[in-house]
Design a protein around this nucleic acid. Structure first.
Length: 457
RNA sequence: GUGGUUGUAGUUCAGUUGGUUAGAACGCCUGAUUGUGGUUCAGGAGGUCGUGGGUUCGAGUCCCAUCUUCCACCCCA
């Protein structure tokens, strides 16, 4: 048998115990918050029919889909003609399924397929991996988790407010304090295109403006020029690029700039309504920063859009989302309004790691290790172990008699805070020796006294 | 998809114009210490130099291909 060196496919990762403990800490903060706000879990399969996936993410997105070959002899149905016609023609003969690219499209598919059983407004959350055949780089992988929550079937702005509340709650649980929830509205952006006389170029404006952080005002102006925006329009845009101040000042400025753009004013009043709701809820420090130049790439957004940025760590957005008017239209169920958002676990992880925000409880796996001296004392050690577990203390026994040094070392490496030494002396006296690994102190006490101390962890 | 970049021990990295047996630190294992981890000391194991070709008397070093890593675009989380 020949040896082979193991390796991972491009852009794929293992998560060892350390990383899993930290990731689960994040996942559980997100999950409990979603559930607290009345969102129900949904899981969809890792594969969807290609007909469901293609055409939903643009040409670029279609290229990034992982396609799965048909089972069996996948060339059986093909002919030389298909081959000559090129890969695009050949593709649908050899592949009918693909790995899902995001959670939103499968969600829309699910809603349409189950519309008669669902009660609307339907609120669901979904925490699952998705796959993209992208070229990987830092913070971008070919397999990554998305944590989405959507409510579909209502256009109430209470949903927007609740998203802000959930973001506040999750970041509060995680200990992230210095962040902004940037909020804008596609209607405001539409109003801007109206005001500058380029009403038919909303999506071009969005993709350029979205890069403002990266390429600066001049960069945006140059890019709009190359996208054939009239120079008068670009001049008219400048005052919008220069909007500054706190939320009230920005609102005041943009209101005068958009005085004649109906949809723009509508977007502004929607934003004000959200602030209003938050005030009624008694939330003062909601972290909202109105940003009329926030655009977001995704084309299906039609109303409120939002994005969360850390002010401590320079990294992409930690969370983002928006309102859409017609997510399910492509599957034959038009005119249903909804809003969704999602957390970027990998980026949140990076922020928490660099700021050292993971609490110790999130990292400790086992609270107590019971030592194993020799076969003769194993029954007593097992009795101790069983009592610890009955008291809900995370505990384990070293599975074989070994040198104490080795067992202590095991506890140390595994970050186990307490070791219970249970040997011949302890067995005879029916006691345990409890050692605190941080202080190095140890005492001989009864099992129930030991449990009392350990139960506090 | 475009243009770069990277790969040597478990990990981070040295390795001279191509020249004997490829090194270090940390980590790991054993012992000093037969019931005590982190510190110290002594010893030890561990490498098809990413993979496949090529040039050469000779390749970790040069050339080609391929995979991988990271970065900038495109796009996005």
């Amino acid at each position: 048998m020949s040896m082979q060196k193991p390796g991972l496919p491009k852009g794929m990762r293992d998560f060892g115990p350390d990383k899993m403990a930290k990731r689960n800490f994040i996942f559980s903060a997100i999950r409990t918050t979603f559930e607290k706000f009345g969102y129900q879990p949904l899981e969809t399969p890792s594969m969807e029919n290609l007909s469901v996936l293609t055409g939903k993410y643009g040409d670029e997105g279609d290229q990034l889909l992982f396609k799965v070959l048909n089972s069996g002899d996948y060339l059986a149905k093909t002919s030389q003609d298909d081959y000559d016609a090129g890969s695009k023609q050949l593709l649908h003969k050899i592949s009918e399924k693909g790995l899902k690219y995001d959670l939103t499209v499968p969600f829309a598919r699910y809603v349409v397929m189950n519309r008669h059983e669902l009660t609307f407004p339907f609120k669901r959350y979904q925490i699952q991996p998705v796959w993209r055949a992208d070229r990987p780089q830092k913070g971008r992988y070919r397999e990554f988790y998305q944590c989405d929550a959507d409510v579909i079937g209502t256009n109430s702005l209470i949903c927007e407010m609740e998203i802000v509340l959930m973001i506040n709650e999750v970041f509060d649980k995680l200990g992230i304090e210095n962040y902004d929830i940037k909020v804008n509205n596609r209607k405001i952006l539409a109003g801007i295109t109206e005001a500058i006389g380029e009403a038919d170029k909303l999506s071009e404006l969005c993709t350029s403006i979205d890069k403002l952080d990266k390429i600066g005002k001049q960069g945006v102006i140059d890019e709009l020029g190359s996208r054939s925006f009239a120079s008068a329009a670009i001049n008219a845009l400048e005052p919008f690029l220069n909007i500054e101040g706190d939320n009230d000042q920005k609102l005041k400025t943009i209101k005068t700039l958009l005085a004649d753009a109906a949809s723009g004013l509508e977007g502004i009043s929607e934003f004000e309504e959200i602030l209003n709701y938050l005030a009624q809820f008694g939330i003062k420090n909601h972290h909202i920063a109105f940003d009329p130049m926030l655009a977001r790439g995704l084309s299906y957004y039609t109303g409120t859009i939002l994005e969360v940025k850390s002010n401590d760590v320079k990294i992409g957005s930690l969370s983002g989302g928006g309102r859409y008017d017609d997510l399910t239209g492509v599957f034959g169920m038009p005119g249903i309004s909804g809003i969704g958002f999602s957390f970027g676990v990998d980026r949140i992880y990076d922020v928490m790691d660099t700021l050292g925000l993971f609490p110790e409880e999130a990292i400790i796996s086992t609270t107590a290790l019971v030592t194993n001296f020799e076969r003769k004392t194993e029954p007593y050690a097992l009795k101790v172990l069983s009592e610890l577990r009955n008291a809900q203390i995370k505990s384990e026994i070293y599975p074989e008699p070994a040198k104490l040094k080795k067992q202590m070392n095991y506890a140390d490496k595994k970050n186990i805070p307490y070791v219970l030494l249970v040997g011949e002396d302890e067995m005879e006296s029916q006691l345990v020796t409890l050692k605190n690994m941080q202080t190095g102190q140890q005492t001989k006490i009864t099992i129930s006294e030991g449990i009392e101390i350990l139960a506090k962890h």
